[in-house]
Computed example of a mutant assay.
Amino acid sequence: MGLIVGRMPSSALRRPAPNPPAHLTLLTPAVDRLAALGTQRRYRKNTVLIEEGDSGDSIYIVLSGQLRAYVSDSRGREITLGLHGPGEYVGEMSLDGGLRSASVQAVEPTVCAVVTRETVMRHIADDPDFTQALIQRLIRRARLATESARSIALLDVYSRLRAMLERRAQPQGDGTRQIAERLTHQAIASEIGCSREMVSRLLKDLEEGGYLAVIDRHLVLMRDLPARW
């Protein structure tokens, strides 16, 4: 799954990945201190680090690259729960000893600091800054889960697509807004909970309507998206 190459000095952890996407965060001091206690591992693109339903005793702190957390059903349909870049971590939901609640895959070549549950629990007791950050993260996770459930239950597919594009769009100097990641139609479908064909049709309609363009494989919002479609 990955190659262990040894512990990483704390000072090295502060170097961000080259040109990370805008939504990725850097290591905070509290996460930096925890990462220094872990073991560095490298994962190839598409490697599955965590399988939903498995037992787990470690968290993964992203040092470079990007991870995708997702859930799937018996028919292979997937919903993306989130993307996690440098300074973020996954696997904390199993700190209570329960089974993994989601799968995690490397979106690109990724380096993580892998920290065992025992080490994390000691660190929680010793580092109040990390403890507070962890509590805030779990609260955000719960809030996002509620918003996601509400979106899937109450919003139509176009409204979910519009919300996702608006959330990711970055303002450009020419007045347009660009999606930093090069998202495939399947990746979008997995995130908003619909078929790839539906995403393709909606994006084509928006492009023909002059609302959206594809430039260098990036989605670019040329003007405000309509509230309804």
Results as ranks from 00 to 15, higher is better:
1 M>T: 12
4 I>N: 10
4 I>S: 11
8 M>V: 15
9 P>E: 03
15 R>W: 09
15 R>T: 11
15 R>P: 08
16 P>V: 01
19 N>C: 07
21 P>G: 05
23 H>P: 07
24 L>H: 09
26 L>N: 12
26 L>R: 11
26 L>D: 13
29 P>V: 00
30 A>R: 05
31 V>M: 09
31 V>D: 08
31 V>P: 13
32 D>Y: 01
32 D>F: 03
32 D>A: 08
33 R>P: 13
33 R>V: 09
37 L>V: 06
38 G>H: 02
42 R>C: 08
42 R>Q: 12
45 K>F: 07
46 N>A: 14
53 G>M: 06
53 G>F: 02
54 D>K: 10
57 D>K: 08
58 S>G: 02
58 S>F: 07
59 I>K: 13
61 I>A: 01
63 L>T: 07
65 G>Y: 06
68 R>G: 02
68 R>Y: 06
68 R>S: 10
70 Y>H: 11
72 S>T: 09
73 D>E: 06
73 D>N: 15
73 D>R: 04
80 T>D: 02
82 G>N: 10
84 H>P: 02
90 V>P: 15
91 G>L: 01
92 E>C: 13
93 M>A: 12
97 G>C: 03
102 A>I: 03
102 A>K: 04
106 A>R: 00
108 E>M: 14
111 V>R: 14
112 C>Y: 12
114 V>N: 05
118 E>T: 14
120 V>H: 14
126 D>H: 05
126 D>L: 11
127 D>E: 13
127 D>M: 07
128 P>G: 01
128 P>E: 00
129 D>F: 07
129 D>L: 11
131 T>M: 15
131 T>L: 15
132 Q>R: 14
136 Q>I: 08
136 Q>L: 10
136 Q>D: 12
141 R>N: 08
143 R>L: 12
144 L>S: 14
146 T>W: 11
146 T>N: 14
146 T>Y: 12
146 T>C: 14
148 S>Y: 11
149 A>F: 01
149 A>D: 02
150 R>F: 12
152 I>G: 00
155 L>T: 10
156 D>G: 12
158 Y>T: 00
160 R>H: 04
161 L>M: 04
163 A>W: 11
163 A>V: 07
164 M>G: 01
166 E>L: 15
166 E>G: 01
167 R>F: 15
168 R>C: 04
168 R>T: 03
169 A>H: 02
169 A>K: 02
171 P>A: 03
173 G>M: 05
174 D>Q: 01
174 D>K: 00
175 G>D: 06
180 A>S: 15
180 A>H: 13
181 E>L: 14
184 T>M: 00
186 Q>T: 14
187 A>F: 03
194 C>S: 08
197 E>V: 09
197 E>G: 14
198 M>W: 05
198 M>Q: 13
202 L>S: 00
202 L>K: 00
203 L>G: 06
204 K>R: 15
204 K>M: 11
207 E>H: 07
207 E>R: 13
209 G>Y: 10
210 G>L: 09
210 G>K: 05
212 L>N: 12
216 D>M: 04
216 D>H: 10
216 D>N: 10
216 D>R: 10
216 D>T: 04
219 L>V: 10
221 L>D: 05
225 L>E: 10
226 P>W: 13
